[in-house]
Nucleic acid binder design. Structure first.
Length: 434
RNA sequence: GCGGGCUUAGCUCAGUUGGUUAGAGCGUCGGGUUGUGGUUCCGAAGGUCGUGGGUUCGAUCCCCAUAGCUCGCCCCA
């Protein structure tokens, strides 16, 4: 028997204080996405392994998942992301669901990785997806919603940036504009993804060596570097300005700005993997240098539902991990004091006999939605109050023989260290007011 | 999967150039005579010095391995 009290590597225990924080964090997420009409769904923690090999990444499945054989000989995998599951669910009821679908979930996910800052083996992830809209209005809503989530926590614009790119646009740049074959393009995509981690000269050298000199047109590396250097769409080379996706991205940024999202920018170096995204991709970056990674991101993936044999559905969505969000909130000091959900702690003088007689009062509180914990230890009164203080419970009422006789109770406010006698009705409204 | 740093009380950390009973602060528990916490005073509990092996008369300290934490790399759905 292993006697360690530590949780499993990369997984966390949530003591009441931690769970209180998580509940608060999630409640803000829920409130914000539900204000846009998104509905919560869920799926099993275990999925058949084939669900994750469906879209290709064999290597990821074999090396970065918890995969095992069940008692019936089936290979199962603990969910590492929600997108395949939700795509499966939509495909399963493709013909009967009322589009557009606005769905969200906050599942616990498992990935077999080496833990580091902002990255654990068990983590929670907000997933927001819209199915059934192919127009740019879907992108606008997704990004506006992302922005509203951070604003709901009290984040200021300068704390984060929203970076946007298009896979179709970048494919056009790499294949047609620069003239690369698919193998070269794949290598270059990986390089671009790591661009900000390399120095500029080394990056240029890598780009050049990744391109086959005999096949490319003269000046291709330079053409590409010029595109990647663009900080805005207007800075893109003249001959790219009229491309359909350029025009669309410009329109997207303009409309976001019109709706108050002024920190969204075009970023040609944004790659975001290379699996199921089909067009617009975006990432929200924490501008705090302590958190040197994107906080969350997503994009359009129009092809996934169709993989299940159903008629394809245009889809856009994003995922937001709890660890990176927590880092963001703590480092920017956006976490408020979180009160204990118990409103009143009742300290008892006189033991079990008094507790028995006080039941009528206690029941009245509970029926009025006041959460009441009774100290049944029969310790001295000072200890009982100290317990309430440590638990972070705001109000204390001492009940003894004296209180049983009157209809007034003395409500002690731990926060202000004050005491005042009130009727039970008055106490209920005072305590619930906060 | 690769590399760096770390691991001594519940927490944050001292310490021993290898020597017999390993310390502090905070926290916890109890008390300062019987119905009021966060101040103060007194007292107590709590450690096989991450784990396993080696060197040595003797290891918490030196060496090796291993685990965990942490930071970075790879990867990041």
């Amino acid at each position: 028997m292993n006697k360690t009290t530590q949780p499993y590597k990369g997984a966390r225990d949530f003591y009441p204080e931690d769970k209180r924080f998580q509940n608060w964090m999630f409640s803000v997420l829920r409130k914000t996405v539900e204000s846009y009409g998104y509905e919560e769904y869920d799926a099993p923690v275990l999925e058949p392994t084939e669900l994750y090999t469906l879209k290709g990444s064999e290597e990821i499945v074999s090396e970065q998942t918890y995969t095992f054989t069940d008692r019936g000989g089936r290979s199962v995998t603990m969910r590492t992301e929600m997108t395949p599951s939700v795509s499966r669910m939509v495909a399963g009821k493709r013909q009967e669901l009322p589009y557009p679908l606005r769905w969200y979930s906050i599942p616990a996910l498992w990935r077999y990785e080496r833990p580091q800052r902002g990255r654990l083996r068990e983590f929670w992830q907000l997933n927001v997806d819209m199915f059934g809209v192919s127009s740019l209005e879907a992108e606008i809503e997704m990004l506006k919603l992302s922005d509203d989530i951070l604003k709901a926590y009290g984040a200021k614009r300068e704390m984060y940036s929203i970076r946007i790119n298009s896979r179709i646009f970048m494919d056009y740049v790499l294949r047609d504009y620069v003239g690369l074959d698919e193998v070269e393009a794949g290598t270059i995509r990986r390089l671009i993804d790591r661009m900000h981690k390399m120095d500029y000269v080394a990056f240029g050298v890598s780009i050049e060596s990744a391109m086959n000199p005999s096949q490319r047109e003269d000046g291709s590396p330079e053409k590409l570097l010029k595109v990647l250097a663009a900080r805005t769409i207007d800075e893109l080379p003249e001959d790219l300005q009229t491309h359909e996706k350029t025009v669309q991205l410009k329109q997207l940024l303009q409309e976001l700005s019109n709706r108050g999202v002024t920190n969204a920018v075009f970023d040609p170096t944004l790659m975001r993997g290379f699996d199921y995204y089909t067009d617009v991709v975006f990432e929200v970056f924490d501008e705090n240098p302590e958190n040197n990674r994107s906080m969350f991101g997503g994009g359009r993936y129009d092809g996934l539902v169709g993989l299940f044999g159903a008629e394809p559905v245009p889809t856009i969505g994003f995922g937001m991990g709890d660890a990176t969000l927590e880092n963001f909130l703590r480092d920017h000091e956006l976490v408020p004091a979180l009160p204990n959900q118990t409103h009143i702690y009742i300290a008892v003088v006189g033991g079990d006999e008094v507790i028995a007689k006080a039941q009528k009062i206690i029941t009245t509180f509970r029926q009025e939605d006041v959460n009441v914990a009774v100290d049944i230890t029969n310790r001295k009164i000072g200890k009982q109050i100290e317990t309430a203080v440590k638990k972070g419970i705001r109000y204390v009422i001492v009940i003894g023989e004296n209180e049983l006789d009157t209809d007034q109770l003395t409500l002690r406010d731990i926060q202000s260290s004050s005491e005042e006698a009130h009727s039970i009705e008055r106490i209920i409204s005072l305590v619930l007011a906060k």
